[in-house]
Design a protein around this nucleic acid. Sequence first.
DNA 1: TCGTGTCAAGATCTT
DNA 2: AAGATCTTGACACGA
Length: 349
Amino acid sequence: MKIRLGYVAMTLNLEKCSPSGTVTVANFKKLPDEEARMYRLRKITRENLSNTLRILRYNKALNISVYRFTSKLIPLATHPLIEHWDYREDFKEEFSEIGKFVKENDFRVSAHPDHYTLINSHSDKVLEESIKDLDYHVKIYEAMGLEDYRYKLVLHVGGLYKDKKTSIERFKENFVKLPDRIRKRIILENDDKSYTAADVLEICKELKIPMVIDIHHHRCVNHGESLLSLLPEVFDTWKGEYFKPKIHFSSPKSEKDFRSHADFIDIGEFAGFLEIAGAIGRDFDVMLEAKSKDSALLQLSNELKNVKGIRSINESEFELERKEGRKEAYAAREREEGTQESTDSSTWL
DNA sequence: TCGTGTCAAGATCTT
DNA sequence: AAGATCTTGACACGA
């Protein structure tokens, strides 16, 4: 079985290569006239797009084919201040060059609208803004010529609003009303506080949404469900999709600051996870959410070369020895322990 | 040049 | 009801 590693938005190994240059509203308003404002907007956009292409070329050189675009490609993209500006037309060539490169190299690219995008909000205003943000992300894909729904948007279920049950119902109601071009891009991830992997899995099964399980978030909040019991069903939600299932992985910053991401991936934790995944015996991709981005990927990649049962194919791809018989062993352990209310870190596997 | 506060955006916990 | 915190990279500003 094969796994691939990817990273988020930026590389630490290219000089002056941020794809997320910004223009703040305050700064934008300070500029003397329309010409100066458009000049600034276009300058930052041009840099963000060309840096994104540089990152993709760098990824290709390193055999890294899983990558998440920044959500900040177009400064102030969904802000009313720039509604009149057709950035897609303006940077047609640049967008299409990125998309062409993605397709030529069969990259798995994705995006993750940030936590202000809430489609289970009870506020019409917030819902409207959220749809606007989703629309922006889809427009970027479309401008790149990535019309195929295989290129996804990762979302969380949203807020609890003091009543999880009705908040989940509201998510479902609002989700099914979304236009195809948005709805068919959305995949769901468990968060670190409110919606557990089991919660999200249930929603995903009902609405036929592919699920991304975040292993770190699962450690932060769960009701004793083991990964081994969740993973096969989570992977099943990807049935019929072009790409293999994807998971998120990160290590906690510290015991005290558990929910925060550490700079690098703890090889012990990752190897432990692969033990479980090896028992399932299915290919999947791993999005690493470490503060040191691609440096963390490269470090993990190096360390994995020394782990027994793992064969390195290149910098970001590995072949795992199938752990025959393990599945039954873990299932037996689970039966013995039963399901328990616990967030004890020793039981997360 | 370096450190610090602020940034488009919401939710939730604390006071 | 108002304020702090969450989280994040980038930037503006001032020392």
